[in-house]
Design a binder for these strands. Sequence first.
DNA 1: TTTATGTTTAACTATATGGTTAAACCATTA
DNA 2: TAATGGTTTAACCATATAGTTAAACATAAA
Lengths: 205, 205
Amino acid sequence: MKKLVETSTEEKIMEAAKEVFMKYGLYGARMQDIANTAGINKALLHYYFRNKEKLFDKVFEGALQKYFQQMDVFSDSSLPIKERVFKYVDNILLFLSEYPQMSIFIIKEFSINPELFREKVQAVKRDKAVRLIQALEEEMATGKIKKIDPVLFMINLHSLCSYPFIGEPLFKHALKAQGKDWNKDFSQEKLNLSVKKFVEFSLGK
Amino acid sequence: MKKLVETSTEEKIMEAAKEVFMKYGLYGARMQDIANTAGINKALLHYYFRNKEKLFDKVFEGALQKYFQQMDVFSDSSLPIKERVFKYVDNILLFLSEYPQMSIFIIKEFSINPELFREKVQAVKRDKAVRLIQALEEEMATGKIKKIDPVLFMINLHSLCSYPFIGEPLFKHALKAQGKDWNKDFSQEKLNLSVKKFVEFSLGK
DNA sequence: TTTATGTTTAACTATATGGTTAAACCATTA
DNA sequence: TAATGGTTTAACCATATAGTTAAACATAAA
């Protein structure tokens, strides 16, 4: 029973830390805020994770892991690249529904402190992200897909998937002010179809 | 001469504040950091702008103004909507080249403190953002463009324009790790063409 | 040169924040 | 029941940070 309670507290802290760090970043986040969110005493944070940086490290590491895990499908050479991209779209949209601020969190913290996290990002990301580019180049060479700029395609793909979740609060506000309803006008399914149409348009012969 | 020096200092502060607030947000930014960036004494910040919130307000207000100004073109009813969108793409990409973090700055601060900025955002944004949607609906009704989901189109458009600048640091890192060169693989011109191709594909009959 | 006025700074204050400590609080076991 | 050991808390401490103040500085006018 002891062990269970322990894990539960640690998990509560991690969940709260994730939430607060994602919202405010390493500099903007307050330990007291994290403690309040987790519903525990501030000293407990230091009991489980020595200090702010260590706690942030854990959160950031986990975020990287989960985020780039979504790109594993790019390496599945049993599928044609278009199918891999389709699968990726399914994965990432589902993932971002749960953590809408994940992309921007990773990008921001990495830009603020590149030297501190370069190795960590490197280690987790490895070549997962660029596998997509390599696969695109291969299928272009064999004439299976259209000749396109693979880097630009990768950027566009990430843009279409990530930004809707990042910008949701503002989009919501803009629509509401005009009597429209975000929840009626936007859905993960619509976005999914729309992105895949773009992929089809870009790659399909 | 006095007046000139004054303006120059105030401007130096505003520039520095913009930079630091965009990087760290209201909570994460430090007045000392802003003072250092501006190359002045911290007390001067309070001399020109009473406190942190007031300074932030000025910066945020200016950011809103400039950002939504780019969307004025959506209201130019002398042009067909596709032309308006093309012009918007030109505008916003140029603007984001200068302030790559502008979209995310506005979104983040607005989400963190919606009640504080709702009116300000409302006042500046007005219906600029949704004018695009209205215009799309009009031209769909008259059969000038394809029948599409206008809200989804708006989201995709913003995604394709904003995210490349937001994610640049990470993209850069990903490509460099694979021996590729961001500056060779990405350019504003390429992106411009690519976005317009998407617009053509989405609206064009 | 002197005075007046606006600008800039160093030194300071009060509070917020990250982090520590010692005591209290369980649950398990001897 | 008493002892043990991990968990949790209130009360601290040291430092960082937003904001203030009084004095120094500079410039223009008298």
